[in-house]
Design a protein around this nucleic acid. Structure first.
Lengths: 209, 209
DNA sequence: AACCAATTGTTAAAAACTTATCAGGATTGC
DNA sequence: GCAATCCTGATAAGTTTTTAACAATTGGTT
């Protein structure tokens, strides 16, 4: 429970969370690792091992309590609290994210959108103000922002990331098709949407084997 | 060169492709695995090993030709040809994807959008027709569609996927927050956008170690 | 109250993946 | 045209990740 947690494990946590949420919504109260295994197409040993990285949440002969395991994972992921977010870039992706209702519901509160396009500045998107990129640096001095969402063209992404980090942002969710780099005290999640489409094309052509 | 290619390797290919495209755009003609290694923060051995899965593209004492290696990877990924695509769901994500210019440029041609909302049916999004979900099955009989993009609510995703597969679609790019299942002769790429946000939250809270 | 079945947490084994090493061939500079 | 250098492809070693196995513990049942 004290060793370094591998990224592979961390990346499975959201999947557990999703699965447990579904079970909970269906009113299921308890679940065993082997039942989860079937439902999620994961190995049961792996599930027990993964969960055990963070504590012994299960009980022999019984399994896991859906509700409390879900709660534990929310806490481990850190999604049981509120984050202040800014979106940079109000193009296709920026807008789609601004309109996405679940973020607000899950505690990711979008405080402002920034753009360079003077036609957009001053307008509102889903009731969120669009401000000028020129004001970003100043804005970050007065507002306490945790997460910046990068939805800029790739040429601007790293520069904007640097401004965000300098302004105290510690998490960057990057949708620009470039690997943004951040210092060790911050973290970036590079999305690279089209990579998935390329992988899809690969398997469509070659098959899975 | 004949063994099974691991998914880990396949998922690095788009990254190589992106990097080589950038080099090519800068006019760089040749590159060694160790130079790539520095530029991409990957191990040089790994790069040589990865590329060697598909053929001996390099030359001792010289390295790799940027242009031809890029071309090879495009071919391996299968992104050097055209795909016919439909988008299911014209909500935030569906619209954003419909407007995304690069898809068309890269040969992913969006032929139609389907939705259940009668207010949207008959309209056009970025000059692409929005058709009724009821007509999807018939549509697939006459049109040869390769890829279906799922941008529906999660409750509808699996059902729509089934219709798509039945209609001859072999690739599904799924943005609904559920793991869509497809038969062995088809392939699905589940995106799960918010998973990345959760992982980001995890590392913001716990740090990387 | 005692047994049986279920299920975890843990340890061990297997598989997959990454990194290091190096012989051999190609290129470049002189 | 020769030597020194560079760099790949291949093999070997090391590391991480996944899967299997099982003792120990709990809950339900008779």
């Amino acid at each position: 429970m004290d060793e370094k947690i591998s990224e592979a494990v961390v990346r499975r946590l959201p999947k557990y969370y999703r699965y447990l949420s579904d079970l909970d919504a269906l009113g299921v109260e308890r679940i065993s690792s082997s039942a989860m295994s079937k439902g999620m197409s994961l190995n049961a040993s792996q599930i027990r091992r993964d969960l055990n990285c963070f504590g012994g949440f299960g009980q022999q002969g019984y399994g896991y309590s859906v509700k409390s395991l879900k709660q534990e994972i929310m806490h481990i992921l850190g999604i049981d609290k509120a984050y202040h977010v800014v979106i940079i870039g109000s193009g296709n992706i920026g807008q789609a994210l601004a309109f996405y209702k679940n973020f607000a519901l899950e505690g990711y509160i979008i405080k402002a959108i920034f753009d360079v396009d003077s036609n957009r500045i001053g307008k509102k998107i889903n009731n969120i103000e669009v401000l000028s990129m020129n004001d970003l640096e100043t804005y970050l001095k007065t507002e306490n922002i945790h997460i910046g969402i990068l939805a800029t063209p790739k040429g601007a992404a790293q520069d904007v990331a640097d401004i965000l980090i300098k302004g105290g942002v510690t998490g960057i969710w990057n949708f620009a098709p470039i690997d943004v780099k951040v210092p060790d005290n911050a973290y970036v999640e590079n999305v690279h949407l089209s990579d998935g489409l390329y992988v899809l094309s690969y398997y469509m052509q070659r098959g899975r084997f």
